[in-house]
Design a binder for these strands. Structure first.
Lengths: 194, 194, 194, 194
DNA sequence: ATTTAATCGAGACGGTACGTCTCGTCTTACT
DNA sequence: AGTAAGACGAGACGTACCGTCTCGATTAAAT
């Protein structure tokens, strides 16, 4: 019977969070600042979100995360495809906005593990999707061993990219090449008996 | 002529930081709480450290970081050595104290990039050292290709471990095995033309 | 066609005000608390009353005020009659409920002068009535000078009683006796030339 | 050892309270408003005063209350002296500032009975002083009966004046005359047997 | 042996933000 | 049209820390 929740207020808060995030950094974002920027009262925020982390979660889960929209090419050269894609994704995560988002994601994970897991999953899922799809193709044409676990490979990329973003680095070409090279061929000498 | 800086006060503050870190988490540590716990006045803290991050830095740089003291075995089986070592290191980073420290390290990196780089280097250096030494041995006996960059491999381990610690996970045996397996042999099919 | 105002809701609000008044004190009574206690929506209160003071006014004007129901005896001893009556009235105003009501009355007077005047009149009118009646009798039998203004005397009693209630005091026998004595005989020495 | 309390801040708060009191009325005075007006932080107020009432108490106890500075003339005509003095005192309590102070005094008494008693005593004491002094003189020259209790008379004036101030009234000449007349001569008929 | 100057503890200060409370207005569905 | 329910913008509440600023007391080297 009561007046329904104002969708306009909700969107204004989430938008204010997204803006404040890249402008000030997560830990400098204040609820009061958010309320003022969104033209909303504090109580309206506290009524609907239990914490700053929850607002961030909703803001990010509802929008798009950097890295997700970079497509993995599907030519017949797996290594080149991976290099091109990982370079692009790393660059996408490494620009100003990407670094701010990555750091916020990390900060909120340190505060609220469960929400952090959800956001990480949201970030990792499309990457895992791309890698799985690409590796399945490579397996089907016999380029890749059938027993390879695509998730492990995808996690490697995610871990590497997030580790770099945390430090505000964009991975260089050499690093990308070296990483992809190792993942492709491993370290074992070709004539080794293992 | 003036009274020299009190080493006792300095140690008390650093110790209080280390304790507070594992008990409350980095963002909940307050300068006032630190001062009270250390039996020191706020001014004494502000006189010697510019920020909370700086105290953390000094506290961690002066002590030992988890993971550094885990030795990489040097038997003649590289893969088994890596698995044993990475399991142990991951476990060392994954206990309560390790996770708290890792998260603090990540949080402070997000705040103060320069200090974060120093702390990361402090964490990564011994790992890089172990991996370099072990791979050099493997190369010398022909188990590993000579063109492999030990740093890239070491970074893989660090990135994976810190990514796991951030999420409060301890890497399971399967994940360790899979990761080491991929790093050892890559993904390329043995009969692939590359 | 339209639904008429709910008399039940009105009574519930007024009753809740009377209860809250003695339990919390006027300034601690909140409209929201009143609405909750009365099982009524806030809007219903705001539709019918412009302010908390107005609710109080209606609640008190509709009920009985302490002190009004104490009859002034009409024996042939004026002084004894006044003492007995004023003692009883003062006690009636001095119990827990009486003090709460008197304070609320005073507080609302400080807020809304017009309403305060109305409530004061409601409190003072019966007292003035009693005193006028009793003095008229005394005048008629020649006990009291004919030029005495009964209103002034009545106001003395009201002022004294409200001043005592404000301070949470019940007037003692000596105070009542002294006051009545002075009002009866004044301060002038019997043999004074004036 | 720490920095001593700032007397300047204390005075600024008390002054701000005195100003706000006459401009807004006691219940509309907010701690935040006081802090802003005084150029002081909220914490400084909360550090030193437990409540708004306590600030008011200190502000009023430290300053002068209206009515106290009106001298009671000491000519040889007691009735004229009392009329002149009570008129002046009533006027002093009845101007804008006087009414605001009287109402604040009443409001705070309703909240904090002990403080209210102290403030009332502070208001009543000089009045009692004047009346006692004047009556003692009148007794010494045989104008007033020796058994008259000066406190009871003084309380009459205080009660009447505060009752009038509460309602925002200034007592008119007739009322003052009638009141003083009754107090002087009582109501008993001159030829009454009592 | 004094002087001198930076240290120390304690904690007051002006601020900012917290999370809660109530205000008075409004919007909705129900009766 | 009146009502219960409760969301809304507004703004004060009392608390926690921030980083800065006195204080008086302490403590070593330089007089």
């Amino acid at each position: 019977m009561p007046r329904p929740r104002s969708e306009q207020a909700r969107q204004a808060v989430l938008a204010a969070m997204r803006v404040a995030l890249t402008e000030e950094g997560y830990s400098s974002v204040s609820i009061e600042g958010l309320a003022a920027a969104a033209g909303v009262s504090k109580q309206t925020i506290y009524r609907w979100w239990p914490s700053k982390a929850a607002i961030l979660g909703e803001a990010l889960l509802g929008g798009s995360l950097p890295g997700a929209d970079v497509a993995l090419p599907m030519t017949d050269d797996l290594e080149t495809d991976l290099r091109a894609w990982f370079s692009a994704m790393s660059a996408s995560l490494g620009d100003a906005e990407g670094v701010a988002l990555a750091r916020a994601l990390i900060a909120v994970t340190a505060t609220d593990a469960e929400l952090g897991a959800a956001l990480n999953e949201k970030l990792a899922a499309p990457i895992r999707g791309w890698v799985s799809q690409r590796l399945a193709l490579a397996v089907s044409v016999g380029q890749v061993r059938a027993d390879v676990d695509a998730e492990v490979i995808a996690d490697q990329f995610v871990a590497m990219a997030s580790y770099a973003a945390l430090q505000g680095k964009v991975l260089g070409v050499e690093q990308v090449d070296a990483l992809v090279g190792v993942l492709m061929r491993g370290v074992v000498a070709p004539d080794s008996t293992g």
